[in-house]
Amino acid sequence: MSKLFSKESPLVSPLNLNNPVAVQVLGICSALAVTSQLEPAIVMGLSVTVITAFSNVIISLLRKTIPNRIRIIVQLVVVATLVTIVSQVLKAFAYDVSVQLSVYVGLIITNCILMGRLEAFAMQNGPWESCLDGIGNGLGYALILVIVGFVRELFGFGTLLGFEVLPSSWYVTNGMMVMPAMSLIIVGCVIWAHRAINGEEKK
């Protein structure tokens, strides 16, 4: 059990030391676009976690039967099927959020985290480790999304998940934070802080 939660385990290391967004720079597109509020950021993070976990398991089960030459197509088809399912589920049970996320749900297919993990991990490891790795990476991604979403919604609208936190009587909302450009700058600052704390220098 202690091995499962150690610093280098596939489940925990993507949360901080090996974070897919801050360290490996994967899956930036959606991380930037859906984070103007906290709620879509959480939904997006969870969707990606579910999809990475399942696609890792499926590819890991199939890894010995997939011919090497066509593996990218096989991976894309598996991911596209899972994304279709998630997008239909979102449309059925969380319509408002799925409208807010618009095309970015479909863009999970082309999210580099998925392909990266499938190529780098699921093709070499068993289903159980792959499942943990998928959940870990999905949560690492969700973590960054939540941080950025938190900052932008708090200062942009003065609310969190729709509840007023900074009362409008004295807090003037900062429209800048809602603009797409600010999410880039916030992610830049998150990476800055992450590297300053962990002291890693990667080129």
């Binding site: 603009m179 450009a181 880039l184 830049g188 990476i191 800055w192 590297r195 002291g199 080129k203």
Partner: peptide, 23 residues
């Protein structure tokens, strides 16, 4: 550029500023 900001961090901030200009 400050050391932890080098590479990726400063690139993000540059892109952010470019996006502001394009706004």
């Amino acid at each position: 550029v400050p050391k932890p900001l080098q590479g990726l961090g400063i690139t993000f901030i540059t892109v952010g500023l470019m996006a502001l200009a394009f706004m």
